[in-house]
Every structure is written in structure tokens, then in C-alpha cells.
Simulated assay, not measured.
Amino acid sequence: MEFDGEFELEDVPPEQAWIVLSDPVAVRNSLKGCRYITPMDDDFSYDEYEPDENLETLPEADPEAVAERAFKEGQQYAALMQVGVGSVKPRFETTVTIEERDEEQFIMTATGSGTASGSSFSMESGMQIHPLEGSEGSRIEWWTEADISGRIAQLGSRVIEPVANKIVSNFFGDIERQMSDVEETDSGITDRIRGML
């Protein structure tokens, strides 16, 4: 299954959009059904890991902490997702690898796979942030190609696609709110973090 789209943020410059979308905590907070996104190693256990629920995001967060935890190219991340699809609400234990992270062109791509009881998926996804013509804002282009099998796949695209589209819409709506919060505070935060990344 393929999903793609564009999202415009009229008052958020690309540099700022990049920083918020590079923060695993901001992404987690905006992704409905996501309990955590955290760097993982060979010993990582989905059952034993307890996420810190109270991590601050910008503008309240310490800029150095945000820069330190930003997605890193080549790093593997564990993500725990629980999303209701029809009558099924699987808990996906997901591994995501950041394949590319280009801070000059604002491009990030990732691959991932996950399993849940009776279902599995693999995916490739990416985004690029462009300046929005005629304003100071951003245009975010995103795409995902997913291969789904098992119980969820049996539900078919008529059930899966509306759920996926709702998750994406909610995600970018919440990301826009976070970016607007950052925009309303000291814009120097953006420059400080970019210098640290």
C-alpha cells in the first residue's frame, strides 16, 4: 500500500519544521497510539522498557536536550504502536532505522518493520521540507510504502486507508500546533539547536 501527501505550514519556516520533526519525543506525542520512540540496541526489550512520559518538547525543553535526542542517521529506534483498525487493535513492536538525514535539503528517510499478534508490516517512508512559495512557511512532502500481512491485511484497503489517513491528519495537525508554539517564543531557539545538530 502506498500513502503520500503534502502539508503546508504557513508561518513555520523550514528550519523550524525540521527541528520539531527531528525530535522523537515531539513525533511520539503527535502520533496517536504511539507509546514511545527510543534508540535501541541488541539487548532492547519491548516488554521491559518503561518510557519517560514527562519529557518536555520545545519551546519548554532544554535546546541541548532536544539536539542530543534528535534522530540520527543509521540509528535504529524501537517504537511501540497500538492502533485500532476495524475490530482489531494490535500492539505493534516496531523497529525503525533512519536511512538518510540531510540537514541541508531537509530530507529524512526511514525503513521499518513491526509485528503484532497475527499481523506484520514492513515500510519505507520519507519526507522533505520545502520553502513555501510566497511566504515564510514550509511545504512538507511525505510518502510511505507499506507491505501489510496477516489479520490486518485481511481487512482490506477500504478499512486500512481511512485509519491511516486519520492518523496522518492528526499527526500533522498536532505537529503544526507544536511548531506554532515554538514560533511564538524566542526564534533564537531554532538557530541554537541547528548549530548543535
Rank of each mutant, 00 (worst) to 15 (best):
Met1Pro: 05
Glu2Lys: 13
Asp4Arg: 08
Glu8Asp: 13
Glu10Phe: 12
Asp11Leu: 13
Asp11Val: 07
Leu21Lys: 00
Val27His: 04
Tyr36Asn: 08
Pro39Trp: 13
Met40Trp: 04
Met40Glu: 07
Asp41Lys: 11
Phe44Ile: 07
Glu48Thr: 14
Tyr49Met: 10
Glu50Met: 10
Asp52Trp: 05
Glu53Thr: 13
Asn54Thr: 10
Glu56His: 11
Leu58Gln: 01
Glu60His: 14
Glu64Lys: 15
Arg69His: 14
Phe71Met: 08
Glu73Thr: 12
Glu73Trp: 05
Gly74Ser: 08
Gln75Cys: 12
Ala79Cys: 15
Ala79Asp: 03
Met81Ile: 10
Gln82Val: 09
Gly84Glu: 15
Val85Ile: 15
Val88Ile: 15
Phe92His: 02
Thr94Arg: 06
Thr95Leu: 06
Ile98Tyr: 04
Glu100Gln: 15
Glu104Ala: 14
Gln105Tyr: 09
Gln105Lys: 15
Phe106Thr: 02
Gly114Asn: 05
Phe121Arg: 00
Ser122Met: 08
Met123Trp: 08
Met123Asp: 03
Met123Ile: 12
Ser125Asn: 10
Gln128Trp: 02
Gly137Met: 05
Gly137Trp: 01
Ser138Leu: 01
Trp142His: 04
Asp147Ala: 13
Ile148Cys: 03
Gln154Ile: 07
Leu155His: 02
Ile167Met: 12
Val168Arg: 00
Phe171Arg: 02
Phe171Ile: 06
Asp174Gly: 08
Glu176Pro: 03
Asp181Val: 06
Glu183Ala: 15
Asp191His: 13
Arg192Thr: 13
Arg192Tyr: 12
Met196Ala: 13
